[in-house]
Design a binder for these strands. Structure first.
Lengths: 253, 253
DNA sequence: TTGTAAACGTGCAAAAACGAGCATAAAAAT
DNA sequence: ATTTTTATGCTCGTTTTTGCACGTTTACAA
């Protein structure tokens, strides 16, 4: 029996029982405990399980969170932006939220506020689920692979039934000429739909997005009422954005 | 038996009974009282329970994790049921899923299988999000407070647009006379709707639900094709269920 | 309030598990 | 065929965990 074969069996046992015992594995696979320990070490290094004394437990099944990696970038700035945006959010507002890590920071800071949230991002909904203060409406739709956003005609139809006080958008690019943009058409479409249903449009983005243009265009700057970003934004760009009639809020850090 | 295994069983007992006795645990786990006391100390430090003289009670700060605590009750049985149900799930099937911890166990075991899942539970959707093998459709709707289920006319309308191969239901009670039942009307309504859209109905429930009747009735036993449960079910009850034309699958533990 | 029995905590010794190093055996490369 | 690499099992010293003993504290009832 080769190593990979053992790895497979160990993972199988782990999936079946949740907890494995070193002695049992040694007997089951007919190898020494030393080998089992080395195997468990390897598997732990791959993040497939968590070692304990005497065996191992299933790793907290956050196997592939494509968001965790992104969250690391500018996380300080995102947190500050989240707090600033949440602070300015009026109680009782009906808010439409796209997905995205910056929007998630705002949602986290909104905990406990009496608001209504309409969203097509299930991670936003999950975050608010334990809090009775917020009423949460999920649009429904098809879950985009490796994302947490719902898209398609179901999402569109549901969103069309709501009037929003504020559309809260996270974007990948914000530019004077080209306006708001993001990486995928589906996200751009959802963002544009939120804007069309909303009284006011707030954009949250760290300063690295300012001046950038991503492939999928959403809308011109003129449609945006407020941008919440961090103090790292270029002052000249900020002036031009304000000259375009956009309120720019700099989060305190 | 390793320490983590004891921890899990202690949490399970706690979730089942709400209060545990040190002597009972010592007898059940076949370790000394000193070890039990040390275990309880550890678990208290993790905030998973509250120590008392002679044992421990469930921690009351369940605001943050309304789900984790529930998961502990019969977690071994639920995992076994999840594996058994997932194994019997045909590739490519279109499955409708309610929420509930037992259904979540099945969904976790379905990782990597090529299936289509229609669900009104956002935690189910979150679990499947990283896996490209599954196509996930979320019904949308209003998020029930402190739960992860979407309800209301949006959920109904979306669900009505789908034909399901299998309705996968988690219930709180399954009884010969009264049929399937659950704790809230909203959940019962959702479950009944899944049933009406599905070719076949599978119910997953640990043996503690067998013979019980919860307040909100869903449907009679005759509408169910298959029950996946654990070997702890009363043999007489099992016979009567099978006599009623229901296939009963006992998960291997 | 006071007595009593059960439970608690601490110190200590035994047992189990761990990590590191080394020798052997198998596999791969030369 | 021989060398190099890799994998496995074993030993030994160290760390962690467990069980027991004993004095102290707590809960319950008279």
């Amino acid at each position: 029996m080769i190593k990979e074969e053992r790895f497979e069996l160990i993972r199988g046992e782990l999936a079946k029982k949740g907890i494995v015992d070193g002695d049992e594995l040694a007997a089951l696979l007919d190898v020494s405990r030393a080998t089992i320990r080395r195997d468990l070490d390897s598997l732990e290094e791959q993040g497939l399980l968590k070692r304990t004394h005497g065996g191992a437990t299933a790793a907290d099944s956050e196997d592939e969170l494509p968001f965790h990696s992104k969250l690391a970038a500018y996380s300080r700035e995102k947190r500050a932006i989240g707090n600033a945006a949440a602070e300015r959010m009026p109680s009782g507002a009906v808010i439409g939220c796209t997905g995205g890590t910056t929007v998630m920071s705002v949602v986290k800071a909104l905990k406990g506020k009496p608001i209504t949230v309409v969203t097509n991002a299930i991670n936003v909904a999950m975050e608010l689920a334990p809090w009775e203060s917020a009423q949460v409406i999920v649009t429904g739709g098809t879950l985009r692979a490796r994302s947490y956003e719902l898209v398609g005609h179901i999402a569109d139809r549901t969103l069309g039934e709501f009037h929003l006080d504020i559309a809260l958008l996270g974007v990948d690019g914000i530019d004077i000429e080209r306006g708001l943009s993001t990486y995928t058409i589906a996200e751009a479409h959802a963002a544009a739909h939120y804007m069309s249903q909303a009284e006011r449009v707030w954009v949250v983005a760290d300063h690295s997005k300012a001046g950038k243009v991503a492939p999928a265009l959403i809308a011109p700057i003129s449609k945006v009422h407020c941008l919440v970003t961090d103090p790292g934004i270029d002052p000249g760009l900020r002036s031009r954005l304000e000259a375009a009639g956009l309120e720019v809020v700099l989060a305190e850090m």
